[in-house]
Amino acid sequence: MSSAAPQPTAGLPLFYRDPQPLNAAQHAGWRLADGDAAFAAQTPFVPVVVGELAAAARCYPIVFAGGDGQPVAVLGLEQRNLFVAEGRWAEGVYAPAYVRRYPFGFIRTVNPDGFALAIDAGSERVLREGEGGVALFEDGQPSALTKQALQFCDAFQADAAATRAFAEALTASGLLIDRRADATLPDGRKLGLDGFRIVDAEKFAALPDETVVDWHRKGWLALVHFHLASLERFSVLLDRQNAVAAVSQDHVSEPQDGAAAKPKTKKA
């Protein structure tokens, strides 16, 4: 969606490198080690679903991807996630469900409407042998961990279907318009984020009464308002970007061993 977007493995969802449907025969000895959010450190955006849009909108700009109109939380202005540092998600900031479900996920089955619980075998947390971590299966049956993952991914999948309906309605109503965000950092570098869409507030206000009533009953009016309010969060992203740049500059300015420290001057 942007010039800063990470490049996922071809044909695979963001983050996933080798998703495999879980089964007791093939993965009987597999275990899952503790992990952190380092896998998302270079990701400037992630998808969000309607059930979490209100919570996500309080922390990030929520925009819509070009094409299918998928709601997306913008996490950074460059090739990095401004909310992950040393593998930890920023304290007090909502972590999207797409991030929290990893390395689990759903994968389509032969049945067009069917999905099976999968795990990313490419994740560093996946242990194929040994006694570390937590078992995925016990006595040939899914462990408590795997059952919890199944419940979480099942709820996420249901929300994803509701999200597609919402995005399709926005697109069909002609409410989504292309936008670009530009920013200039204190060091003079210019950043640009494009390839996304937002709701046209004027067109939204002019929706027919019957559409307003229908969308109100479905909860979609509130979702649009959350989205529009979240656009103010672009200023928060810029502030975080400036803070990161300042810390990086301080590290560059630190004297090397044996080198004399240069005095710092303050700008008015």
Rank of each mutant, 00 (worst) to 15 (best):
A243C: 03
E202I: 04
F196L: 06
L238T: 02
A259D: 12
V213N: 04
I198P: 09
H225V: 05
D187K: 05
F234W: 15
D182A: 15
V247K: 13
F226M: 04
Q256T: 11
A259Y: 10
L221G: 00
D182W: 12
V212H: 08
G219I: 07
V244P: 03
A243F: 07
G258A: 05
R180K: 14
G219D: 02
R233F: 12
R180S: 10
K190N: 02
A181R: 14
V247Q: 13
V247P: 13
H251N: 14
L237F: 08
G258R: 14
V247A: 13
A222V: 06
L223G: 02
R189I: 00
P255D: 03
L185W: 06
E254H: 15
A201N: 08
D250K: 04
S230W: 12
P255E: 12
L228S: 03
D209M: 13
W215V: 06
R197E: 11
L191H: 01
R197P: 05
A246K: 12
A246G: 00
P255Y: 09
G195R: 01
D214A: 05
P208M: 02
S253R: 14
D200P: 12
L228Y: 10
F234N: 10
L238E: 11
P255A: 01
R233H: 08
G192P: 07
S253D: 14
I198F: 03
R180F: 13
L185V: 09
L191M: 05
G258E: 13
W215F: 04
E202F: 13
V213C: 04
T184F: 10
V252D: 02
D187Y: 08
K190Q: 05
A259C: 14
V244T: 13
R217P: 00
V244F: 04
S248I: 07
K218H: 03
R180L: 15
D182V: 15
Q241N: 01
R217S: 10
L238V: 13
D194F: 09
G195I: 08
N242G: 11
A181Y: 15
A259P: 04
L237A: 01
